[in-house]
């Protein structure tokens, strides 16, 4: 390749793009920096500082020992793990059945599912069902109410349809049943697709604040995003986590509540950052499968 000279427009373009990226990176680094700074010095930090002022783990000690915050984190993990597993199990098995071209009533079932995807009955009608089933204030409410997403189901079908039909026929001839073909041929061969919807679901589960907020009423059942939302919307961090809960810390008087809120934001982002490399590897292909084909 020819080395082209750096033109003024290229430098300008690079600067603009770096600036745009900074608007996304600086706020996150600022939040991180303030959350690990020494409390008595963090209160006066500006929104542009990305280096911590000293180092302290106080905010994180509070979060991981607080009787409100720690259970909420564990609840979030529980709902995300169990919920995502149910999501993926239901979605992949339904997608396998629907990717069989000769399945009878396939068309009618697809029409039904697409109506389910498009028509939103609204909040109250769903709320009444959750109430009637006695699921209020149980983790099953949030887990079950979003058990299958039709859009992800269609993406998964596209991946299964791309598995060569000859493999299916060969397995059938060898006497394999559908469950074996599904588990031993389709899941491994379409693992990029399965990974994609797995991450779609996991991110949505972890990030959900709305349904946990309306269905999980007691503070022992609630999730991290719900608590974080109370921090941010009401701004009253002290009363939510209970000032008496902080008394055990000698440094109680020095707690910077904004920094404590920032530390909670960091905890809420960490699982996303852990998934992000996989997201980058698989997500883009998932978007293509959903948007481009038919």
């Amino acid at each position: 390749m020819l080395k082209k000279k750096l033109s003024v427009s290229q430098i300008l373009l690079a600067l603009v793009m770096i600036l745009i990226s900074l608007t996304m990176v600086v706020p996150l680094l600022n939040i991180l920096a303030r959350s690990i700074s020494v409390p008595e010095r963090s209160a006066s930090m500006s929104g542009l500082e990305i280096l911590p002022r000293g180092l302290s783990s106080l905010n994180y000690q509070i979060i991981f020992s607080n009787p409100v915050l720690l259970p909420s984190i564990l609840n979030s993990i529980k709902i995300t793990v169990i919920g995502t597993l149910i999501n993926v199990a239901l979605t992949t098995s339904a997608a396998y059945a629907l990717s069989r071209r000769d399945l009878m009533y396939k068309k009618a079932i697809m029409v039904f599912l697409i109506i389910m995807m498009l028509f939103d009955p609204g909040l109250v009608p769903e709320y009444l069902v959750v109430q009637k089933l006695g699921l209020m204030n149980t983790h099953w409410s949030v887990i079950l109410v979003t058990a299958v997403n039709v859009y992800y189901l269609i993406i998964c079908m596209r991946y299964f349809e791309a598995v060569p039909e000859s493999l299916y026929e060969a397995a059938l001839l060898d006497g394999a049943g559908h469950l074996r073909i599904f588990a031993q041929i389709y899941l491994p061969l379409a693992k990029a697709g399965v990974a994609t919807i797995f991450m779609f679901y996991a991110v949505v589960r972890w990030n959900d604040y709305f349904r946990p907020g309306i269905y999980l009423l007691s503070s022992s059942k609630t999730t991290l995003q719900v608590i974080l939302r109370q921090f941010i919307v009401s701004g009253d961090t002290a009363s939510i986590i209970g000032a008496q809960n902080l008394l055990s810390y000698n440094e109680f008087a020095k707690v910077d509540y904004t920094a404590l809120k920032n530390a909670t934001i960091v905890v809420a982002i960490i699982p996303i950052l852990l998934l992000y490399p996989l997201v980058l590897k698989f997500y883009t292909s998932g978007v293509m499968a959903g948007a481009v084909k038919e």
Binding site: M24, I31, V203, N207, D208, Q225, L228, I232, K261, A268
Partner: peptide, 12 residues
């Protein structure tokens, strides 16, 4: 930013 929750985005 697309993968951050709305709560986190609002906080930021």
């Amino acid at each position: 930013p697309h993968f951050l929750s709305w709560v986190v985005i609002a906080g930021i």
